[in-house]
């Protein structure tokens, strides 16, 4: 016990210098992304305006650092303006799926038995659905709307969250502190919210951030297939698909959004890692 305690306390000292750098870099990247998402349309109000005379300019053209696409839209302006639609939908996806996952995961893990059986089979069923096909079908029925795609992704992501939360709950409920709460005849809701949820928080947070990174990619991929975002909207995924057609005249048209997606997704993942490492440190207090 003493030995454990000391290792966990001591370990950060060894790596103390490296983690803040990663953490700060991630926070700067995400801060910039947030800024662009909130104020991008103010910086470049005419980012989506078509200007056919200036179409397909290569990178480095005067006034267009990364050139333009086939509709003559500036790549830099379009990318900044597209931040909001690229990043907000996934945020809703990750948040919504966390809420569903927490709610049903707690129910299944806490009550087990029949509740668990029903919920687990339902999640199995959802897990078996092919995402892309489902996206195309939903788009066919409701139209290729951004918010319908968001809802679809919540439904697709939630089963994983339910499983993860359920596993976390099952691990916790046999611990004496939960059994003591049961013996005090506390209400199940109180046990779940006041005792289980706080101890599941590191798991939830990590999962939320991982989901967010995945949702950015999933949404971009669906936009790439023309499902998520309407044509003409500023969106990184949309830019990827449109840029493919002019890959040779202006490669930056698809490379720029691709790099942005990768950078933001990585920043989110590394942030999750950094927070987890801090948690392990705190756990050994």
């Amino acid at each position: 016990m003493t030995a454990d305690l000391l290792t966990t306390v001591a370990a950060p000292g060894v790596r103390a210098r490296r983690r803040p750098v990663t953490l700060v870099t991630c926070l700067v990247i995400l801060g910039l992304a947030l800024f662009a998402a909130l104020f991008g349309h103010l910086l470049y109000p005419s980012a989506t305006q078509v200007n056919v005379l200036q179409a397909q300019l290569p990178p480095g053209s005067p006034g267009h650092l990364l050139g333009t696409d086939q509709l003559g839209r500036d790549i830099v302006a379009l990318s900044v303006a597209g931040t909001a639609s690229t990043l907000i939908g996934p945020l809703v996806v990750a948040g919504g799926s966390m809420l569903l996952g927490t709610f049903f995961g707690l129910l299944a893990g806490f009550w087990q038995g029949k509740t668990d059986f029903l919920l687990s089979r339902l999640t199995d069923l959802l897990l078996a659905l092919p995402v892309v096909l489902l996206g195309v079908v939903v788009a066919g029925i409701f139209g290729a709307s951004y918010w319908w795609t968001t809802v679809l992704l919540i439904v697709v992501f939630a089963p994983y969250d339910i499983r993860i939360v359920r596993a976390g709950v099952i691990e916790q409920v046999t611990k004496p502190y939960v059994e003591s709460a049961r013996l005090l005849r506390l209400s199940p809701w109180r046990i779940m919210l006041r005792h289980l949820l706080v101890n599941l928080w590191p798991l939830e947070r990590t999962n939320f951030l991982l989901n967010y990174a995945n949702a950015i990619i999933a949404m971009s991929a669906l936009s790439f297939l023309g499902v998520g975002v309407q044509q003409g909207t500023a969106n990184w995924g949309r830019q990827l698909i449109d840029g493919e057609q002019i890959l040779f005249s202006n490669p930056a048209a698809s490379i720029a959004p691709a790099v942005l997606i990768i950078v933001v997704a990585c920043a989110v993942n590394l942030l999750a890692d950094a927070l987890n490492a801090d948690d392990r440190k705190a756990a050994g207090r």
Binding site: K175, P176, E179, V198, N199, W201
Partner: peptide
Amino acid sequence: VVFQDPYSALNPK
């Protein structure tokens, strides 16, 4: 009930 393991008997948070 008072359980055996004092380390898991209390909610760490």
